[in-house]
Amino acid sequence: MDMSSRTQGELQIVTINAQRIDAAVAIQFKDGMRAETEGPARRVILDLSQVDFIDSSGLGAIVAAMKQLGPGRKLDLAGLTTTVESVFRLTRMDTVFALFPTLDAALMAQAS
């Protein structure tokens, strides 16, 4: 799973550089997220702007990534395409994660 990250103080941005998070890459995604988020950042923003498909395995992998952050750390999602956002809303996962239309919107929420 191709992902990259950068840290700004207590904020970390993880960008997924792939079009799909599905059963074929769910384990790689979880392992990659574990490696990328080992640092102390209290808030992690997952930039999904390049992802245009997610299935239940991908959804489960994102939930697992949130849980592995542990207490006191937060995972927010940014840049969801219409298709990906609809999966989160249909499964009521929009009540678990803060969803932001763009990375900039997520960053502005941090500032306020």
Rank of each mutant, 00 (worst) to 15 (best):
S112M: 12
Q19G: 06
L11M: 09
T95C: 08
S112W: 11
T7K: 03
T83V: 15
D31Q: 15
R20Y: 04
V87S: 13
D31T: 13
E10G: 10
S57C: 11
F88H: 03
T91V: 06
Q50Y: 09
R73S: 07
D76T: 05
G60Y: 01
M66F: 09
D22Q: 06
G60H: 01
A23N: 05
P101G: 12
G58N: 02
L90P: 08
F97T: 04
A109H: 01
D55V: 07
S86V: 04
I16N: 00
I21R: 02
P40E: 12
A105N: 03
L69R: 05
S112H: 14
V63D: 05
L99A: 02
T83Y: 09
Q12W: 03
R92A: 11
V44S: 01
A24E: 10
G79Y: 03
V51I: 13
Q19W: 06
R92C: 11
L103C: 08
G72W: 02
R34W: 06
Q8C: 07
Q50D: 13
K30L: 12
T15H: 12
T102D: 07
T81P: 01
R34A: 15
G39Q: 12
Q50A: 12
R89I: 13
D47V: 05
V87L: 14
Q19Y: 04
E38P: 08
K30E: 11
L107N: 14
D22K: 02
S49W: 00
V84E: 06
S86D: 14
G9A: 10
S112R: 15
I62F: 04
M108S: 14
A109G: 02
A106P: 08
F53K: 05
Q110A: 12
L107K: 15
K30V: 15
I13F: 02
I13W: 00
M93Q: 12
I45M: 00
T95W: 07
L69A: 10
V96D: 01
T83F: 13
F97M: 02
A98I: 05
G60I: 00
A105E: 05
I45Y: 00
M1Y: 11
E85D: 15
R89W: 00
F53E: 05
V51M: 08
A41V: 06
Q8A: 15
M3P: 03
S86G: 10
R43V: 15
K74P: 05
T7Q: 07
V63S: 04
A18E: 13
Q12K: 14
N17S: 06
V14C: 11
P101D: 10
